[in-house]
Write a protein that binds this DNA or RNA. Structure first.
Lengths: 212, 212, 212, 212
DNA sequence: ACCGACGGGACCGCCCGTTGTT
DNA sequence: AACAACGGGCGGTCCCGTCGGT
């Protein structure tokens, strides 16, 4: 059964509007922007969303999904833990020049806008951003744990700390890239991550395949 | 010659208002907030600033100065390059639980709000943020260069890349700390920086003194 | 010939919606309320009514009919003019605690909302309210005239003035009852009417039967 | 010390706007109407009132004050209780053709609009209307009590019931007058009140002056 | 016969900036 | 030097009505 017309319109609104919210933030996005991007009038938009807040939340989830899909794809494309982690890093680095959604990493943008802002919408977005970030770090952590378990990697590292360091440096570098409009910062950060992962190889690598 | 009354009032406004802008961003700060924080009415504020934009810019510079002072102090407190770099990292890490200005690193906040926003004020702020970030990375870079020059550190590293990595990971970790309201992320990032710097020590350290 | 399906739906809408209009007034009733009460969607409603105005008018007529029925029943239940008038008064007094339509006397409500409001719908409603009020006063007037004609009542009263006084005091008291959410005001007003009617008895009542 | 300019403007707004609210009701009055009547723009209006609700409440109080003044004046103009009560009745009757505020009795209008309406503003208005109505009935009640105490009136009546009956019939008659745009209804109601009061005279009236 | 979907507009509240005044 | 007062405009929400589909 194909999606109903309403669903299609709703999806259309979300997908066209998500870049606006990701680029300009919640406060910086007006319904005028929404109308211009979606091609609908206010009345039409409000049929599908109860409020600007709801629309912003849906747009955020959409952006998260797009980025999540790309990262997931990069992970499954790798065979070894090292490849998977490198893929994750490169996927995040693409936020610099070829982001899945214009405006770069939605978690970063939302986290910075929401961290001190009052109001229920910011609480909602922050909570969602936390979940997404926890999932991202958790994914990286799992890859490190897999690499250790399979014997591919050294076992004297803390997967969680390693994952947090990876994400931190990539997000920070992405911020730099976006500030200077120069993707090289993230790209070099990704390269550093890959180098780091290489340095974690066991001397006698007998690993052939990471689980999961 | 003591500062005139007008100057003092202007400084008062800037210093009381800077935290608001740093926490809520330019768009999220209203003149109502400004009035409440400064204790002045709109007319009083507009005597010292031509527009909200000018005030926001002045507040941003104030926040930059506060953070810059703290970092500079931490640097000069160290004697070796390693100590200075560690000091810089720890100073930035304090943004997590004891920031020089509420809201955390103003460069990070401004960079993320301004990167895709239209309007002249965002261009001004972005330009200023770039300068500040360039200075920050440049300071770290100089410290690495000094460490190499003095023989304290290995010379097979790229000072600029090292500095960018340092700042990236600290800013990224700060974002995590603020997202989760948990300062441990930046603190662990600072610890990783210190460990990294330690690992750059020359085997036979004959370091005498870093310049500056 | 039984009512067609469309007719039944239309009646259903009117009867479920009339209380809303009577309680909240024309301006205070939205199509959302109408949809919630009737169980239909906007499209369904607009198939039976050309506009909100038409629906409001139909709802008003329905409310008038309900109240009119109750009053008529009370009148025919009495045998003497005095009983009939008392019945009329008590029927109106029931608007205080057990109204035929929630919200109390629709004539009162509509009269007050419409008296100074611009717009065609208010003119329509006002005109209809006048007719209903004229009928109500006329009915009471007729009862007094009957009482006089039959010799049951004194003939030194003006039936029209008497009827207007009756209605005025009951409507005014109903307003008080609704303002204070205390039905005693109308009930006491009805008691005063009954007392007044008793005081109009001829010394030697030879009443046989009032007409109608 | 003369009233400040802001106060004067505020009073100007209230006095020009009160008739609008009294005629069209709260829901029927828009800020456009307010702007047109007061000559100010929204920004100017919102300087003096936090919301439409606050303005409506102030306008209601103003209307109550105007009507209250007129009734008070009519009461103090009389010497005997009978004269005072008659004065009160005639003052209320003037709502039919020469109201102190266009739109007629504000208590009546507000009571009917608010009795079943949800929302905080209606609760506020209803509460205020109750207080005003209680004061009005209380004033009439006091006059009856004074008449009895001074021996001017018969003592076999209940002042409270008498007062409620007086107000009820006048308000109900006012509703009729406004519905038909015919002041004769209230005027005749006032005449009936005067007649009723006359009928309460003691056979041997020795009263010369009512207290209070 | 009923509903989903969308347009168009009005309304309230807010917010920045300017002017007159003290 | 500071403030009260006011203008002008935008942004979000709601609400009535219409049009096409089913």
């Amino acid at each position: 059964m194909p999606p109903t017309k309403g669903q299609r319109t709703r999806d259309h609104i979300v997908s066209t509007v998500a870049p606006i919210f990701n680029r300009h933030g919640y406060a910086g996005t007006t319904l005028e922007d929404v109308m211009a991007a979606s091609g609908l009038k206010k009345g039409g938009v409000y049929r599908h969303f109860e409020s600007k807040d709801d629309l912003a939340f849906a747009a955020f989830e959409h952006a998260l999904a797009l980025q999540g899909d790309r990262i997931r794809d990069a992970i499954v494309a790798g065979t070894t833990a090292e490849e998977k982690i490198s893929g994750l890093a490169r996927a995040m680095a693409r936020n610099g020049d070829d982001p899945p959604i214009p405006g770069g990493c939605p978690i970063l943008n939302t986290a910075v806008e929401c961290d001190d802002a009052p109001g229920p919408i910011y609480t909602r977005l922050r909570t969602r951003a936390r979940r997404a970030m926890t999932a991202l770090i958790g994914a990286a952590e799992q890859l490190f744990a897999d690499g250790i378990a399979s014997g591919e990697m050294r076992d004297d590292i803390d997967p969680h700390d390693e994952a947090a360091a990876l994400v931190s440096s990539l997000e920070g570098a992405l911020m730099l890239s976006r500030l200077y409009a120069d993707p090289s910062h993230v790209q070099r950060a990704a390269a550093r991550v890959e180098e780091r992962v290489r340095s974690l190889r066991r001397s006698a690598p007998r690993a052939r395949r990471t689980a999961r």
